[in-house]
């Protein structure tokens, strides 16, 4: 990986800086999305995969457990949001 010359970076004009900043913001959002996928995979794996792996693919039960896990997590999240809005907490 080649290093960028910091002095060259100082030469970036205003317009290019702005384009880069908008681009970087989009990349950061993508990275955050991926970070969530890592978090949810970890969480649902722990809930759904209880037996040591004996084959190289998920069983149909494990597969539906993982899908259900994420959907119920989102349900839980919206329920908590509603509770907070109703000041029920």
């Amino acid at each position: 990986m080649s290093e960028l010359d910091p002095q060259a970076l100082a030469k970036l004009d205003q317009e290019t800086r702005q384009e880069l900043s908008q681009w970087a913001q989009k990349e950061t959002e993508k990275a955050q999305l991926q970070q969530n996928v890592h978090r949810f995979t970890d969480m649902c794996w722990k809930k759904c995969i209880t037996e040591p792996a004996t084959s190289g693919s998920l069983t149909s039960q494990e597969e539906s457990c993982i899908t259900n896990c994420l959907q119920r997590f989102f349900d839980t999240n919206s329920m908590v949001v509603q509770l907070v809005q109703r000041k029920a907490l």
């Binding site: 995979t41 993982i66 959907q71």
Partner: peptide, 25 residues
């Protein structure tokens, strides 16, 4: 064997979560 199979399964789980998450979002 277990680690290698588990790794494949974990990647599969990652892909399912990714797909489902994008749909839900």
């Amino acid at each position: 064997n277990c680690i290698s199979q588990c790794a494949t399964k974990y990647t599969q789980a990652w892909n399912i979560i990714s797909k489902t998450y994008i749909q839900l979002a």
